[in-house]
Write a protein that binds this DNA or RNA. Sequence first.
DNA 1: ACCTATATTGACCATTTGGTCAACCGGGCG
DNA 2: CGCCCGGTTGACCAAATGGTCAATATAGGT
Lengths: 199, 199
Amino acid sequence: MGRNRKPEEVRREQILQAAFDVAGRDGIGGLTVRAVAAAAGISHALVLFHFGRKDALVRALLDSVIGATTVLHISDDIARFPHARDRLHALLQQEMARLSHQPEQTRLFLEFWAMGAREEAIGALIGAELERYRSAFRAIMEELLVSEPVAFAGVTADGLAAVAVSWIHGCAVQAMVDPQHFDTDEYLTAVRGMIGRLA
Amino acid sequence: MGRNRKPEEVRREQILQAAFDVAGRDGIGGLTVRAVAAAAGISHALVLFHFGRKDALVRALLDSVIGATTVLHISDDIARFPHARDRLHALLQQEMARLSHQPEQTRLFLEFWAMGAREEAIGALIGAELERYRSAFRAIMEELLVSEPVAFAGVTADGLAAVAVSWIHGCAVQAMVDPQHFDTDEYLTAVRGMIGRLA
DNA sequence: ACCTATATTGACCATTTGGTCAACCGGGCG
DNA sequence: CGCCCGGTTGACCAAATGGTCAATATAGGT
């Protein structure tokens, strides 16, 4: 399967993989057409032949990173929990574990996001993806809201979803800054005790 | 006061301010010696005359950003709270508010941090500063630990401090991604209901 | 006025980068 | 075989960048 792809496609993926390696090693700032070509073992003109301009290569790389980073998949195991709170908890735990095990992808995503603040096209892509990620959380949050209306007085599902995404972000950052000390379980326990039972 | 400073010092600060403006507009990647010179209205050779090399300028800018971003100041108002939990809460709220009102500084700090993953010197500076920030939280966490040992079974003060820092980071990121929707109070309320009262 | 140290500049250089182009190659097909 | 066309390359170009340097302006002290 997949062996009858056009040679152009396989070359593109070769180059894309090389671009991913280079970006992971030297950052997006260090991603140059020639460096990618060298990593792929081809001439730099060939990279431009397949992608037209560097911008297109960068954008293709962003697409690839997005595809591998922010897909939020709610598995059957999670869906089976009866209480919305338990589902949310399992989901948070899953996402924390996933992101903390792909520090490179997360770092790249953050770099792209910083770049998006200046480049219109990148910013739009990142923004849309973040919105998708957030809306996936919003679904659960709405159930949580109707299931426990007292605890969340004055809070909207959008607000809750934003908090969840931000939570994941902070978690991912922490896992990159200090991977040794990072522990998902301790993390959850700590927050539970830290914020909870206050009202 | 301060008017009798050496002219060299005032020039350096002029250049540094220009560098800050440029970095805020075009990112650290777009920070070039010539762009800084242009923003300061001087020749690019003069920038190098005062800073030696670009690296030194970048590092000076990082020092400036660090000084304005990660200083954790526990005011008397906060210190007066009797319960450790209340102090922590007030501190979190203060830091959230502060960071959400300096999005540019925060963005620059994050960019530096990403750069630190590749450049030894930058990484060491950022790491040290993060450690200082974290240790400031650890002090409060230790008090919280002795004040409520039951809620935090199996969690260390270091772990709690790490969570707090990560929490702030996620919050800062969120405030930058979506400044309109960001609201400190709703944020706290949401987390309170989301994580709390689970055990 | 002169002299000296500091500040400042424009010209210049080597390197890197994105991008173009003509030439070339190799296989499929008439 | 010869032709053609997608893939591939090296040479080349213009622009930008970090950095150097000699020349000059300027201010302050004597």
